[in-house]
Design a protein around this nucleic acid. Structure first.
Length: 677
DNA sequence: GAGCACTGC
């Protein structure tokens, strides 16, 4: 059953998979896909095994075609044997995706291929959006959505086939699902009715890891359709990848036809904005007569309108150059790209459980990521990739990125695992097991938050509050804030605040942030700190009918604020279900700050000296982030949402608190820690 | 007086 892996040649990619924007591209008839020649083998492998692994690069059509194959094969079998269809709304086939847009757009595509509307036979389910009816048999969903369902039914009984797609990305949710579906598989095998089949789909890496995890599950290799991509490495190691990228860019620009688009991968907003400026400057300076270039930045914290510019067709006599973060790696597919320039680096957040510090830093990419970037050059036709690192340097890169589960705070994951009735986290069957210290740190945090209590033998159980906290799609610290605000009579305010804290920054930032903009911002400033300031923005946004004009005038990211509104609605519904005390405190904001202190009491810093603060928990010396409204002020005691190290250690989103609040809410914790009093 | 990558429930 196992075939030899294909050569690791440049990947081929087409428009069959991922991203909502691809519907703009010409659709290839699915019958042309090479995967159809393997149909029989695919069906046989899935139905004769509990679990199997399919490997295939993007573009082999596995995401769109395989669920359909399996559905059709099963229908045929049922019709011939029983002459009737399986039960309604059971025996679903689901296929998980790490991203919402992928789940939705693939579902829409497959629905149209069977000449139906989305939500009939083929549907999707993502947060805030669902197209599923009683007729639905094939359901595309985000991995996080299936994880939510697993909290209600850990055995996932409405599914007969579960496909974990894009498993190589090793997202937190997919990794947790590995353990959950494995357990469900064993349970359903024992119960002997309603058998479950698991299918893991991945790019060509981690084969042994996945196969071994599922007791030597068989592996099937799927051939992709390949557009060749030429890969070039620099001859000598580069110290300045931006400079190297610029030189490469202009070499391509001088020698290649203008209709061939160029995609440059860099690491962050500042770097991208300044590089775009430099490119424009070089072209405009006219020291060398160059053909015109349209330079467009691309990163997540831009308005949707600005992001959409990269999809626009460029006139024939202008070169399109996109300078992007790794949002351009998987999330957004840009048409017309023939050349990729890869700086070899990525900005990534890591968490150190020992120190509780989050680090946001530039790191080298993995080999897998290098190929993912390379693949972006050949989505429509042959292309080229220019790597700003030597071949030797490439060989030294880690083969795959570190799974998210191994580099994040595990508190939320631990709470979810406990909520599914698994009392010993260390016994949870992780694909890649996190450090015992990380698990211990997460449990300690949950105990402090009174979500969990230790019973004997290394086992833990949820408290009543913990069960409630697990219902919220939030960091447990924020769930605690909600419960506290219910007691303090300010849940309405906290719902708004927690929702804003769940989205990216609502302020538009750019390098040309001017004084006028700062003045606009100051209108919202509350002296008690950033949290009440954010709440103020939210309220003013609502009072101004959520209009685009108001957002533009105040340099507010409307997309993120609207998202916060949707989150608030969802959280409020959960509060109603949990019968919390939904009240407003009016203008008595001190209760909001007190409720914040109840959830964020592990994030407290006291004034130390000059511009330095010291955290109560681990005695780190930190500074107030310049984006804070309290920057420059020196309150003696604050709580903060986030402690992150970039160039320095910063605390972000800060509120002034009173020592009494802390002592009253968690006397044991603070008795020994607070130096004042 | 610095400047946050990307997902997801």
């Amino acid at each position: 059953m196992v075939k030899a892996p294909p050569d690791h040649t440049p990947m081929a990619v087409d428009s069959q998979e991922s991203s909502s924007f691809e519907s703009m591209m010409p659709i290839t008839s699915p019958n042309q896909l090479p995967i159809h020649s393997m149909r029989k083998k695919i069906i046989q492998t899935v139905f004769t095994n509990d679990c199997c692994i399919f490997l295939g690069e993007t573009g082999c059509g596995k995401t769109t075609q395989i669920p359909r194959f399996l559905y059709e094969a099963r229908e045929k079998k049922f019709k011939s044997v029983l002459n009737k269809k399986p039960h309604r709304n059971k025996n679903l086939i689901c296929c998980t995706q790490p991203r919402r847009v992928a789940a939705i757009s693939v579902a829409e595509r497959v629905a149209s291929e069977v000449n139906q509307k989305c939500g009939q036979l083929v549907g999707y389910s993502v947060r805030f959006d669902e197209a599923v009816t009683r007729q639905t048999k094939i359901k595309y969903m985000t991995d996080g959505m299936l994880l939510r369902e697993a909290l209600l039914d850990p055995n996932l009984r409405q599914y007969s086939i579960i496909i974990l797609d894009e498993a190589h990305e090793r997202t937190l949710h997919t990794d947790l699902l590995f353990g959950i579906v494995k357990q469900a598989l064993e349970y359903r095998k024992k119960s002997k009715k309603n058998p479950l089949h698991i299918l893991v789909m991945s790019a060509t890496m981690n084969v042994d890891l996945f196969s071994n995890y599922f007791n030597q599950a068989p592996v099937l290799y799927l051939q992709g359709r390949q557009y060749p991509i030429d890969v070039f490495h620099v001859q000598e190691s580069q110290t300045d990848y931006i400079h190297a990228s610029l030189i490469t860019l202009f070499q391509i620009h001088r020698s290649k036809p203008l209709n061939e688009g160029i995609l440059i991968f860099l690491t962050g907003q500042d770097e991208i904005d300044s590089t775009c400026k430099t490119i424009k400057h070089i072209v405009a300076s006219g020291t060398e007569s160059l053909e015109p270039i349209l330079v467009l930045p691309l990163y997540a914290n831009m308005t949707t309108m600005k992001q959409m510019l990269v999809f626009k067709q460029t006139p024939m006599n202008i070169r399109k150059v996109i300078v992007s973060t790794n949002i351009g790696e998987t999330s957004i597919t840009i048409p017309g790209i023939r050349h990729v320039i890869d700086c070899g680096c990525v900005k990534i957040k890591t968490f150190n459980p020992q120190t509780g510090l989050e680090l946001l830093q530039v790191q080298k990419i993995s080999q897998a990521q290098a190929w993912q970037r390379t693949g972006r050059a050949g989505r429509e036709c042959p292309g080229a990739c220019y790597r700003m690192y030597t071949e030797e340097e490439y060989e030294k890169l880690a083969p795959t990125p570190i799974p998210e589960l191994l580099r994040c705070n595990l508190a939320t994951a631990a709470l979810q695992i406990l909520a599914m009735g698994i009392t010993n986290i260390s016994n949870f069957d992780f694909v890649s097991k996190p450090d015992e210290k990380s698990i211990a740190a997460a449990l300690r945090e949950l105990i402090y938050l009174r979500a969990v209590q230790a019973s004997n033998d290394n086992t833990y159980e949820l408290t009543d509050d913990g069960r409630k906290m697990a219902c919220f799609p939030l960091d447990p610290k924020l769930s605690r804030c909600l419960l506290a605000s219910s007691d303090l009579g300010c849940l309405e305010e906290m719902l708004k605040l927690v929702s804003i804290m769940s989205v990216d920054t609502i302020f538009l930032t750019s390098s040309n942030i001017n004084e006028k903009m700062k003045m606009q911002r100051q209108k919202f400033t509350m002296n008690e700190g950033d949290h009440l300031t954010l709440l103020n923005v939210y309220k003013t946004f609502i009072a101004n009918k959520k209009t685009k004009e108001w957002c533009q005038m105040n340099k507010i990211n409307r997309r993120n604020l609207l998202r916060a509104c949707a989150i608030r609605k969802q959280l409020r519904r959960i509060c109603v279900e949990l019968q919390l005390n939904i009240k407003s405190c009016g203008t008595k904001f001190s209760s909001v700050r007190q409720a914040l202190a109840h959830g964020l009491f592990m994030n407290v810093a006291e004034y130390f000296k000059e511009n330095d603060y010291r955290t109560i928990n681990d005695r780190h010396i930190v500074k107030i982030h310049p984006s804070s409204v309290l920057f420059g002020a020196k309150p003696s005691l604050v709580v903060f949402t986030e402690l992150i190290q970039t160039t320095k250690r910063f605390i972000r989103d800060i509120t002034v608190v009173e020592p009494e609040w802390l002592l009253e809410s968690n006397p044991d914790y603070f008795k020994t820690r607070l130096s004042s009093k």
